[in-house]
Design a protein around this nucleic acid. Structure first.
Lengths: 106, 106
DNA sequence: TATATTGTTAGCGAATTGGCTAATGATACG
DNA sequence: CGTATCATTAGCCAATTCGCTAACAATATA
């Protein structure tokens, strides 16, 4: 479930936010800091990340503390690795002909 | 480079195509098969995947052979894992307080 | 050369996305 | 209570995305 993790990570700004949060939790204001966009915009992106379960929000008074959800990130990278290793597995099984194609891919 | 890998993977249909291709190369027609959309639509998605370097295309006469690019997939999953492990690393370093937050995230 | 096969391009509309500013909510603090 | 602070909501507009059908391009085959 929650497979629009990739949709959440598709936007460059949201990836920058994730990179920011990987260094520790932050408030909306802190996350907005150096991104060069307005706070409502960041708020919107954080909501998208939250709905995709890439981040969690803990509301403490008037400040919101945003944090990454490693479980969701793990799911996403696992999906990718599943596809990649399945593909790679083809070569282990077959050999010659496919190995050439592999070289083609530069 | 090629960081819109996530944009490429954001679309459900494109993920299905990737899953299909992880089982081996396929032509446009083969990829279209059971997806329930028109061939021009699949053609378009394949082009998107190609531009994002998620797949390569080898044209052989009138049929195009599409194949996954494991290198691009590896880059993407690596980015995710970098963020995730950086986040996880915070807990190894700190402890108590953050451990509680960790439990909150269910 | 005529026809079939494989795929792309063109062009259309509906829907979604992403940014902004202005206004609103809600909590903290003097 | 009044004001500042942290954040979301509302509403607008431009741009992009996604699907379709119809038409075209290119290669194979009879």
């Amino acid at each position: 479930m929650a497979n629009d993790t990739f949709t959440a990570l598709a936007h460059p700004l949201r990836r920058r936010i994730v990179e920011r949060l990987s260094g520790g939790p932050a408030t909306v204001g802190e996350a907005t800091g150096d991104l060069g966009v307005s706070k409502p915009t960041v708020s919107r992106h954080l909501r998208a990340l939250e709905e995709a379960r890439v981040v969690t929000r803990v509301i403490d008074g008037r400040s919101h503390r945003l944090a990454l959800r490693p479980d969701t990130l793990a799911e996403a990278s696992k999906w990718i690795e599943t596809q990649r290793t399945r593909w790679e597995g083809l070569f282990d099984a077959v050999g010659e002909y496919l190995q050439e194609e592999r070289a083609d891919r530069r």
